[in-house]
Design a protein around this nucleic acid. Structure first.
Length: 293
DNA sequence: GATGAGCGG
């Protein structure tokens, strides 16, 4: 026995074959001929029948006839049109199919409780941004790595998200608190409900409040936020008081901010409290320049 | 004299 024939037998031994073993590799390869001009496609394949004999199976199919039969009259008519536009100088299907350059963001699902994926810190810089840039995709303008949704320059222009859209006024819900068929019942603030004037009082309020920000400087270092509240709230509704604290030492940095609902109230507070003696110091109260967005 | 913390996904 030659080495060559030994190798052959080691690949395939008749004795080890089961009845249902796949012997198809012993058969000649399948042949596909056509379809020819008449639309006739011929497939020739070989199989073993139940007796273990090799049989040849020839299948003929009408291809073109069938395909055209499915096209309706109008479609057939369109086929006879003269080509126009870019198609005039092109082979059908060559350059006419466009590859979309639109950016489509896919969010990779992450199992709850799973650790952040093993993206190396070096990769983040390549994707152009501050730390965590890859995860930062604005839900309003979809710009990625630039800003969070809350900082979006289009935040105030954006149409409200679906969850905030209430039913049209005529449609009254029978059970308002019950979850809808699709899932949880979403709370809809009155200002966002159908029929509410969004421009009047609701969505715009937060931004306006932020602009009614008053800076208070020359505070003694033991002046705290409750003190500021006590001092300023007689002038009108205060939405926020803040005293800057040194993060290391925990002592006041001597300045803070007070936000008012109404700009007029803020102005009155400024007029009255600027130069006011408080804790042996002369307060300085003036409009704060809005924080950089 | 002085201009805010931290949280998302």
């Amino acid at each position: 026995m030659t080495i060559d024939s030994q190798q052959k037998t080691s690949k395939f031994r008749w004795g080890e074959m089961d009845e249902d073993d796949d012997l198809d590799f012993l058969l000649p390869p399948k042949q596909v001929i056509g379809p020819d001009e008449t639309g006739l496609k011929t497939v020739i394949e070989y199989k073993f029948n139940d007796e273990g004999n090799k049989v040849k199976i020839t299948t003929r199919t009408r291809v073109r006839k069938l395909a055209s039969a499915r096209l309706n009259k109008r479609a057939m008519e369109r086929r006879s049109w003269a080509k126009f536009g870019d198609a005039v100088n092109e082979e059908a299907g060559s350059h006419l199919t466009m590859v979309s350059t639109e950016e489509i963001l896919l969010e990779r699902p992450k199992a709850p409780g799973a650790k952040t994926d093993e993206t190396k810190p070096g990769d983040l810089s390549q994707l152009g941004g501050k730390g965590g840039a890859v995860l930062m995709v604005c839900r309003i303008c979809h710009k990625k790595g630039d800003h969070w949704t809350s900082k979006c320059p289009y935040k105030d222009l954006a149409a409200p998200t679906d969850v905030f859209v209430d039913k049209p006024p005529g449609e009254t819900s029978t059970a308002p608190a019950a979850p809808g068929p699709g899932g949880k019942a979403a709370y809809v603030p009155p200002s966002m409900r159908a029929g509410a004037d969004r421009n009047a009082a609701g969505s715009d309020m937060r931004r306006r409040n932020d602009e009614n920000s008053v800076r208070v400087t020359n505070l003694s270092e033991d002046t705290r936020e409750p003190d500021l509240m006590e001092l300023f709230h007689p002038f009108g509704a205060v939405t926020r008081v803040y005293v800057a604290i040194d993060q290391k030492t925990g002592v006041s940095r001597g300045f803070g901010f007070v936000n008012f609902v109404s700009r007029e109230d803020a102005q009155r507070a400024i007029n009255k409290l600027n130069g006011y003696g408080y804790d042996n110091l002369i307060l300085r109260v003036e409009w704060a320049t809005p924080r950089p967005t």
